[in-house]
Amino acid sequence: MIKVGIVGGTGYTGVELLRLLAGHPGAEVVAVTSRKEAGMKVAEMFPSLRGRVDVAFSTPDETPLEQCDVVFFATPHGVAMAQARELLAAGVKVIDLAADFRLKDPAVFQQWYAMEHSCTDLLAEAVYGLPEVNRDAIRAARLVGMAGCYPTSVQLGLLPLLEGGKQLIDTQTLIADCKSGVSGAGRKAEVGALLAEAGDNFKAYAVKGHRHSPEIEQGLSAIHGGPVKLTFVPHLTPMIRGIHSTIYARIKPEALDTDFQSLFEQRYAGEHFVDVLPAGSHPETRSVRGSNTVRIAVHRPGNGDLLIILVVEDNLVKGASGQAVQTMNLMFGQPENAGLDIVPLLP
């Protein structure tokens, strides 16, 4: 049984980890930290976990995290890098759901997250947590920086077109038009997340530049083996969960005869959590709600030179905590789908 610790268990990704791990046959949550809620039973804060999770919150200083096999950081940026070195030295594997170990260049991290990286020596060994791309590296890793929610959808949407240096699309003019539910902003008091502000409304934000942009370009460039440029525009939608990414790619003249539907179907044929829909489909966010599944549809209007890829995921599951559990399974030799074969919720 994998002994699991969770640092920062009161946010949406924290409670989602608790929900998923409560049904995991090979893992047990033995510690959940929160300075503010120390002493409170987890199930008292989250009644949905009554009868499923019996631990209480404890302060990080008083929690023997070094006795865990793995520690998840479901915390704000900057927390994991302050504690990772000590845990790794104790033989504990670390999975960070924030951005501390996503970006390989510490200068880029400082630019986008307005803080200096405190353990740049660990960046070289940190594995990027996108299993469909880095499965083998994750299996051997002791430190993983999980992919962000938007970056997961965009990279999986473009992976079959770029992998192995494929020359199918123009890699310098890619566009990702992405929409997310309000839970993507985290569990905090914020005017923009109020029902009267976010409900019955739709808006773009961070058009000048979003901190996920360098992560997406870093990941796509690594997949392709060369520089990739992408325009990324996020939007806030009046729903709680879900991401819908519409990705536009211009097909190169020499690739116009490619069967892109077959390309996607063949690439993801062995992927448990990626579902390529039949040609002409339009995936909906509600079709993945509460699950670790990504659904993808490939369109080519008028059989022309523009490819449109539609991708949906639950931002809290495949976009965060579910993918983190998927990563834990790989790191500990568990079945990759352990605790994650969840049928989406409908309605």
Rank of each mutant, 00 (worst) to 15 (best):
Arg19Pro: 01
Leu220Cys: 03
Ala140Phe: 01
Phe73Gly: 02
Asn315Thr: 07
Val311Ile: 04
Ala189Val: 12
Leu306Val: 13
Ser291Leu: 07
Phe72Leu: 05
Gln167Pro: 03
Val325Asp: 04
Ala27Ser: 07
Pro160Val: 12
Cys119Trp: 06
Pro47Met: 10
Phe101Cys: 09
Leu49Gln: 05
Ala126Ser: 14
His244Gly: 03
Met81Lys: 11
Met146Pro: 06
Cys178Ala: 11
Gln67Arg: 15
Ala255Trp: 05
Val53Gly: 00
Thr258Met: 13
Leu330Glu: 06
Val92Leu: 09
Ile243Cys: 08
Val55Phe: 02
Val276Ile: 06
Phe260Trp: 08
Leu103Thr: 08
Ala196Ile: 08
Ala126His: 08
Leu49Trp: 03
Ala196Pro: 01
Ile216Leu: 10
Glu284Gln: 15
Asp121Met: 09
Met328Tyr: 07
Phe57Val: 01
Gly145Leu: 05
Ile2His: 02
Arg211Phe: 12
Ala338His: 05
Cys119Asn: 14
Pro278Leu: 03
Ile6Ala: 00
Pro106Asn: 05
Lys36His: 10
Trp112Gly: 12
Asn337Ser: 14
Asp200Phe: 14
Lys104Leu: 04
Leu158Ala: 10
His117Phe: 10
Ala204Arg: 15
Ile95Cys: 06
Gly280Val: 10
Lys93Asn: 04
Gly242Cys: 05
Asn315Ile: 11
Met328Lys: 04
Arg35Gly: 10
Gly148Asp: 02
His77Leu: 03
Gly302Met: 07
Leu123Ile: 07
Leu159Gln: 11
Leu87Arg: 04
Arg289Asn: 10
Pro76Asn: 03
His212Gly: 12
His299Arg: 12
His77Ile: 12
Asn134Tyr: 14
Tyr205Leu: 09
Arg139Ile: 04
Leu340Arg: 08
Cys178Asn: 13
Ala269Asp: 01
Leu330Thr: 09
Ala206Trp: 05
Gly339Ala: 03
Ala320Ser: 15
Gln218His: 01
Arg139Cys: 10
Glu336Ser: 14
Met115Pro: 06
Gly242Tyr: 03
Phe73Thr: 03
Asn337Thr: 11
Ala38Asp: 05
Leu236Arg: 13
Gly219His: 02
Ser118Lys: 14
Cys68Ile: 09
Val276Pro: 01
Glu215Ile: 15
Glu284Met: 13
